[in-house]
Amino acid sequence: MALIKKFQVTFDCAEPERVARFWCEVLGYVVPPPPEGFSTWDDYNRSLPPEHRDSWSACVDPSGEGPRLYFQRVPEGKVVKNRVHLDVRAGTGLVGAERLAVLEAECARLLAVGAVHVLTQVADDENESCITMQDIEGNEFCLD
């Protein structure tokens, strides 16, 4: 049996395009081009029945290395903590005060685009520092 190497991460949300653009800012991703035959995403959306307009969006790693993120509109809001979350690897290879400073700088950048700071966990004898945050619809993620 062949191993699957590509996958996408799907988010349920209220405003797919808004959440996709937020994650583009976080990860340096881009919104992919519209489907063939459409010059813009607005043109594509106008071609759909009203109930399907703006029902999804996506963002992709421009290098092709990272997973595609897919955002689908759902009627219900987020109620409890995510069972899966993304760890944004901002401090890879760093330790101590240097790591914490990099994480705090990234936290400040993301606050400016709508993220919410939840908790800063400072390094102890077992774990390095990390920062828990929420995206613009309350989905948790970590800066680590």
Rank of each mutant, 00 (worst) to 15 (best):
H52M: 15
M133V: 02
L69S: 05
V116S: 13
L69G: 04
Q72D: 13
T92F: 13
R73N: 08
F38R: 04
P33D: 08
A101I: 01
G77S: 07
L110Y: 13
Y44M: 03
H52E: 13
M133C: 01
A14H: 11
V113C: 07
V118W: 09
V116N: 06
Y70C: 05
D12S: 14
E15W: 00
G66Q: 05
L110N: 07
C24W: 00
I131Y: 10
L110H: 09
G93W: 06
R68L: 14
D42S: 15
L69N: 06
C13S: 11
R99M: 08
G77L: 06
R89W: 06
E17S: 13
E65M: 08
D125I: 10
D42L: 11
N139W: 05
S47D: 07
L111P: 07
N82E: 15
A101D: 13
G96Q: 12
P33Y: 03
F22S: 02
F11Y: 13
P16W: 01
V95M: 12
G114K: 04
E106V: 12
P32M: 03
L48H: 02
L103C: 06
T132W: 15
L100I: 03
A105Y: 00
W23I: 03
V118S: 12
D43A: 12
E106M: 12
L110K: 05
S63I: 00
N82D: 15
T40G: 02
S39I: 11
G37Q: 03
E65T: 10
